[in-house]
Design a protein around this nucleic acid. Structure first.
Length: 308
DNA sequence: GCGTCCAGGTCTACC
DNA sequence: GGTAGACCTGGACGC
């Protein structure tokens, strides 16, 4: 645990919007169990090593507070005001605090089946500080078990990330990932056939040929943006649909084997149904359908303090 | 302990 | 445009 007397500590508080739950956001999907995110279940904290734009590493520890989110930021030196601002900006982005969901909350409030989403403080899906990290992780979820995804991401951070005293690691930069050989990726990261896709993607980002961070504020239509995301080798329909959710676009259901089985269990007694049937059922929710679908599939997590 | 089979998305080649 | 097979790993299972 990276505590040290020589460490500079900054404490602050982030105000949160209406209809927000810290833990419902942390457990909105599996990202909180992939490093650099770590949930400390004993101290009820979310921890994460942040890499600032000037290269400074900041170990952030977040707790739920009555006034919002309480942050303890540990760093090798006292943070400047611009560094403190960047820490807060990265965390605000992770928690989607600046995303306007008023229309979404109005839609779910009108729908008896979905009303619980607003009242439970759900609606904001946790994401990484960068689109690069979200996409790399998304690629690591394809065609494998969740356990293997955790192994790949763990290896990416410990073997390619920056180390902070105390044994925690940041997520690797595009340049660091781009410098890897395929053999290294296969042997050390265990990313298998995804290795060439990951390296190629990192090279495009590191060289500036592909600006994925711009996707969060892109004015492209959702269909156009979906196609652009699909242009990354290794990202198919499922991964692109899921990534779009983390970009604030919710038109796609991002069907994978887990949600297909879950939908069949909830609505058809476990009997398999076609993707078209699922899509038809959520058509009425318009551009919010992907978000409402996801929360309906994970509603049973609501009753668990730590769903996973 | 070893071998075999299977699940999991995406890409590519082929029809 | 649709489909089959390959890709790779961990886990389950049988021996």
């Amino acid at each position: 645990m990276p505590f040290s007397d020589s460490r500079a500590v900054t404490r602050s508080n982030i105000r949160v919007p209406r209809y927000f739950s810290f833990w419902r956001t942390v457990y909105s999907h599996g990202w909180c169990s992939l490093p650099p995110f770590v949930v400390d279940k004993e101290s009820h904290e979310l921890r994460r090593l942040l890499l600032l734009s000037d290269g400074t590493l900041v170990y952030s520890i977040l707790r739920e507070a009555s006034t919002g989110i309480r942050i303890r930021a540990e760093s090798p030196h006292t943070l400047t005001s611009s560094q403190r601002s960047e820490v807060r900006a990265q965390l605000r982005s992770c928690f989607r605090l600046d995303e306007d969901l008023s229309d979404f909350f109005a839609v779910v409030h009108k729908d008896r089946r979905s009303r619980w989403i607003r009242s439970s403080g759900s609606g904001r899906l946790l994401r990484a500080p960068t689109v690069f990290e979200d996409l790399v992780k998304m690629m690591c979820t394809t065609n494998c078990s969740w356990g293997l995804t955790e192994i790949m991401v763990q290896n990416l951070t410990t073997k390619l990330g920056e180390e902070f005293p105390g044994g925690v690691f940041s997520f690797p930069t595009p340049a660091k990932l781009a410098s890897c050989t395929e053999a290294f990726m296969r042997k050390e990261i265990r990313s298998g056939y995804r290795s060439t896709y990951l390296i190629e993607f990192a090279e495009r980002v590191a060289s500036g040929k592909l600006d994925v961070e711009f996707w969060r504020k892109s004015k492209l239509s959702t269909v156009e943006l979906f196609e652009e995301v699909r242009g990354v080798k290794g990202i198919g329909e499922y991964a692109a649909g899921n990534l779009l959710r983390l970009l604030g676009r919710y038109d796609y259901l991002a069907l994978d084997s887990w949600v297909r089985a879950k939908y069949a269990e909830i609505h058809h007694g476990g009997r398999k149904v076609s993707d078209r049937t699922i899509e038809r059922a959520y058509q009425k929710y318009g551009t919010w359908r992907g978000l409402i679908f996801w929360y309906e599939m994970t509603k049973d997590w609501l009753n668990q303090k730590f769903p996973f």
